[in-house]
């Protein structure tokens, strides 16, 4: 566990000291504010809870894109610069490397989520919302962000190129998103399977202010499988 914290702290320091991470967060906040103004608030009169649900809808998608860009460097950059050999030659397990990097990226992504807090506050000022709805929405965002980062980390473990890492993890995230659309055009029994795979269907209750264990388990499972796969990729590299 010490090694996980050690690696996470160094990785978080790398995010906080480089412009790249701040630029990604600034762009995400700008896009999220734009989407909030253009789609969540605008249009016909809405209940505050509907505005809030729309806010969580847009923030989840933008957060997922941000997670892909934040995670693309995690292992690919280490391989590109050769610093991965420092970790490989130190008494550290591959799972500790993966977990340390994952927690650092998650902490940094939380800065973005924290930066979006002014929007629910605005809704609360001009309308009426429940704290439970806000908390469940943010829990959903955290779960979407964690699973997207894990997928991104897996993509980053596959290659030395950060661009290839971003593209491959982007494709995986889009595939998990498209399942939601594909589920509407396929017949049973595939409907249930494809629906079960789609992340948005599991996020829907969270943005409406509901917390279900089965939906939390889905995100936990995606995160676990992606992190496990990333660990196996690191292990396999030693044999190649």
């Amino acid at each position: 566990m010490n090694n996980v914290l050690l690696i996470a702290r160094r990785e978080l320091g790398a995010y906080l000291r480089s412009m790249g991470g701040y630029v990604i967060i600034a762009v995400l906040l700008f896009l999220d504010g734009l989407a909030f103004n253009a789609f969540a608030v605008a249009g016909t009169a809405k209940k505050s809870s509907e505005v809030l649900a729309d806010f969580f809808f847009w923030t989840s998608g933008i957060g997922m894109a941000g997670a892909v860009f934040l995670s693309m460097r995690l292992i690919a950059e280490e391989r590109q610069t050769g610093t991965v050999q420092l970790l490989y030659s130190s008494p550290v397990h591959d799972r500790e490397i993966v977990l340390g990097k994952f927690f650092a990226a998650l902490a940094f992504l939380c800065l973005f989520y924290a930066g979006t807090a002014y929007m629910p506050i605005l809704v609360a000022v001009y309308g009426k919302i429940s704290l439970g709805h806000v908390l469940s929405g943010y829990l959903g965002l955290l779960l979407v962000g964690a699973s997207s980062l894990a997928v991104g980390l897996f993509g980053s473990a596959l290659t030395k190129s950060q661009v290839v890492a971003a593209v491959s993890s982007g494709v995986m995230c889009v595939a998990l998103t498209m399942c939601w659309i594909v589920a509407k055009v396929v017949d049973r029994p595939f409907t249930d399977i494809v629906t079960g795979l789609a992340w948005f269907g599991h996020f829907e209750p969270f943005r409406q202010g509901l917390v279900h264990l089965k939906h939390s388990v889905y995100f936990g499972l995606v995160t676990f499988v992606a992190l496990f796969a990333a660990t196996r990729v690191l292990e396999a590299r030693r044999w190649r």
Binding site: N2, N3, L6, I7, R10, G13, A14, R17, S18, T81, G82, T83, V84, Q85, L86, L87, S89, S90, P91, V92
Partner: peptide, 28 residues
Amino acid sequence: IGYLPDTPPVYDEMTVGEYLAFVAKLRG
């Protein structure tokens, strides 16, 4: 063991002291 690869595995954003302290802790 201490291993120096053909390219020094250093993190540019850290200071020398921070980097060496990080490596020392990592190596127990």
